[in-house]
Write a protein that binds this DNA or RNA. Structure first.
Lengths: 219, 219
DNA sequence: TTGTGTTTGTGACGACTTTCACAAGGCGGT
DNA sequence: ACCGCCTTGTGAAAGTCGTCACAAACACAA
């Protein structure tokens, strides 16, 4: 179990989803070859990724689907539930709140914040949208692990500083800015504007350097 | 102008945003050092990224903010507008439709599709939500360049095949699946579930390998 | 015009990631 | 129990990406 790259973790997450699919199809065992085909990588890549965490396969046979699912869930920390706060009750916040996959994966939204007086007090399922003035108090009370930042970019860094101060150790950021967090806090960015610009670049330069759309068939 | 990696393009997009900010602050010139500070990379990285496209700076001085903005807009293909179709009028689709940044960057949504009879016919600003049966016809008529896929994973690949068939050359995918597109079509994925699992991994393994949160301070 | 100070552009280096290739291991048939 | 076939796990090679360090270029001052 050496150092593991971010891309490896990303692929594990993908393998996990594919394995669940396979399980539903009644498949009991998969080879690295088969997983590679489904995930769009190579068999060697699959084996390397898995082998950074242990020897889960049987030579000559492949991997047991159910065993590997269990291993991956354990590696990714998905056996427990995570307590999540959603900061920003705008359109993106609302979309994320309704995203059922989160709950299914064990990410439970325990609090929603906004600064808009019109939003504060609204009932969202079993939760009430709370004033962002209460962030520190509620984050501590609810023992929030992860904060989802869905506020305008101008407010993002301030919100992050506050939730981190209140004990949050993971941030999923939807604001198109570069956030700064202290060591020990994990930060992931989802930047739709950037992805669109990547597409714009790829489409503008078709025919030129043949590699511009390396995302194709890649993750 | 050699081969350019995806990460380079991502950073260019970031530089562009930061330069606009600087321009609003009345700054006329920036050094690679300054851009690095703002973007969280290194000066050498900034210079390498820019130099893959040309020599935009003046030695001893730095880069002209307005010139560099123009160059980056040109490189990223943002001087024109792109015609976009949104497939899926659910929560995510609605959130994206309302995301003003897209329009500001020149990405104009010209069509919205859904398969739900309750949604079809709804008025969304100046657009009417159309039946997904009309995808081929409308995509061709409206000369759509880019499709945003905001449908359930079970429908995603089918939708992609159809829009590609109808002439779309860029896909922004929000469904948590690995899509397959023919060569010449650019594909970008936004996978929130995967990012959350990355956070879960990082939080589960704190203290272990010190590098788990390399996203921190990174992109 | 010459000198000083600053910052770019880039080849060389180092770190990290992916691919390759094969020995080691395990199953099934005879 | 042995043989043949298949697939894993992994060191080594290839490739990609980021960092370093410095010569080249330019502004400005005297």
């Amino acid at each position: 179990m050496k150092k593991v790259s971010e891309s490896t973790v990303g692929r594990l997450s993908l393998y996990l989803r594919l394995l669940k699919e396979a399980e539903e199809q009644g498949i009991l065992t998969v080879s690295s070859e088969e997983l590679a085909r489904r995930s769009g990588t190579t068999a060697a890549q699959v084996r390397k990724d898995l082998s950074s965490f242990g020897s889960f396969g049987k030579r000559g046979l492949g991997y047991s689907v159910s065993d590997l699912i269990a291993e991956l869930r354990s590696i990714l920390g998905l056996e427990r539930t995570w307590r999540v706060a959603l900061v920003g009750a705008g359109r993106i916040g609302a979309a994320l709140f309704g995203y059922q996959d989160f709950r299914r994966q064990g990410f439970h939204i325990r609090a929603v914040f906004d600064s808009d007086p019109h939003k504060i007090g609204q009932q969202w399922d079993e939760l009430v949208v709370r004033s962002d003035a209460e962030i520190e108090k509620v984050v501590r009370e609810e023992e929030i692990d992860i904060a989802i930042i869905a506020v305008p970019e101008s407010a993002a860094q301030r919100v992050v500083d506050r939730v981190v101060q209140a004990g949050v150790r993971g941030i999923l950021n939807f604001a198109p800015v570069k956030l700064h967090v202290p060591p020990g806090v994990a930060l992931k960015n989802v930047n739709m504007a950037m992805e669109m610009e990547g597409l714009s670049y790829a489409l503008s330069n078709e025919g030129r350097s043949r590699r511009q759309n390396s995302t194709k068939e890649g993750e």
